[in-house]
Write a protein that binds this DNA or RNA. Structure first.
Lengths: 134, 134
DNA sequence: TCTTGAGTCCGTAGCCACTACGGGGTGTAG
DNA sequence: CTACACCCCGTAGTGGCTACGGACTCAAGA
C-alpha cells in the first residue's frame, strides 16, 4: 500500500494541494510526520479530518467556526448542544443572506422586465442604479 | 455653500472615506480637483457617480462590472441592451447563489432538527459533517 | 544508466474589496 | 491659544485561498 502523500490527500478530499499546506500553516490541521525525503505522510484520520473541514467550508462555515467544530468533535466532548448552537447561528446567517439576495433579485428582475418595450427613454436598470434603493 | 470634501462625500453616499480614496486609486472614480491645502474638492456629479457605484456594489456587482456599467451610463451610449445583458447575467449569478444557500439551509435544518430528542448517540450535525473524528 | 516528467519541498507574492494604522499637516470653535 | 476634528499620504493587514519560482526527489522508459 502506498503512503498518503499530500497530493493523494488533496485528490481524496477535493481540497487543493496548496490549500492543504495553508491549513497546516494556520494550524487547522495538524502537521503530519515526514518521510526521510521530507515528504508529508498522512494517515487515514487526516483524510477524515480534512473531509470534515471541506464539507464545513462547503456549508459556508468560516475557518474559526471550523476550529470550534473540530474541538467539539473531539472524543470526550459530547457537547451536542454547543454544536447545535453554532449550527443554528450559522443557519441564521445563511437565511439572512438568502433574503438579501432575494430582495436584490426582485429589484433586478423588475428593472430588467421594464426593458421590454425597448423604446423607453431611460434605461430602467441604470435608472434603478441612479435612484435610491428601497 | 461649503465645498464637498471627502468626508462630506463619504457621509452623503454612505461610502467609507478610505474606500473613496481606494476607488480613486483604482480609477473607478475620477480624481477631483484639489484645494490650495491639498484637500479634495468634489462636485455634485461626483456625489451622483459615487452613489451609483455604491448601489451597484450593494446589488453585488463587482468592480469590473461597475466600470462597464459606468461606461454604458455615459451620455451618448444609449446601449440599454448591453446593460440589460449584464444585469441578466448578474441576476443569474444571484439566483444560483440563492439556490446554493437554500440547499445548505435545508441540510443544516435537517441536522439541527434531529438534535431534538437529545439522547441521540451521535451529534447529527457533526455526523452530517462527516464526523466522529478519531 | 541516463533522462524525462511528475510529484514534492519551501517561502513569498498576488487576488478582491476593502479597512486600519501611523505620522504628519490644516481648519475651526471656544 | 488650545483642543480637536478633519484631511493628507503610503503601507500593511484582512480572509481564504491560489500561483509562482527554484530546488529537490522519485518512478518509469530508452
Amino acid at each position: 500500500m502506498a503512503a498518503i502523500t499530500i497530493g493523494k490527500l488533496a485528490s481524496e478530499t477535493g481540497v487543493h494541494l496548496e490549500t492543504v499546506r495553508y491549513y497546516e500553516r494556520i494550524g487547522l490541521i495538524p502537521a503530519p510526520r515526514r518521510a526521510r525525503n521530507g515528504y508529508r505522510h498522512y494517515r487515514i484520520e487526516d483524510v477524515r479530518r480534512l473531509s470534515f473541514v471541506r464539507r464545513a467550508r462547503d456549508l459556508g462555515f468560516d475557518i474559526e467556526e471550523i476550529r470550534t467544530l473540530l474541538a467539539l468533535a473531539e472524543p470526550g466532548q459530547s457537547s451536542c448542544d454547543e454544536v447545535r448552537k453554532l449550527a443554528i447561528a450559522h443557519l441564521g446567517d445563511i437565511q439572512s443572506k438568502i433574503s438579501d439576495l432575494q430582495r436584490l433579485a426582485s429589484l433586478l428582475t423588475t428593472s430588467i422586465e421594464q426593458c421590454r418595450g425597448s423604446e423607453v427613454p431611460i434605461c430602467p436598470v441604470l435608472d434603478m442604479l441612479g435612484a435610491p434603493l428601497a
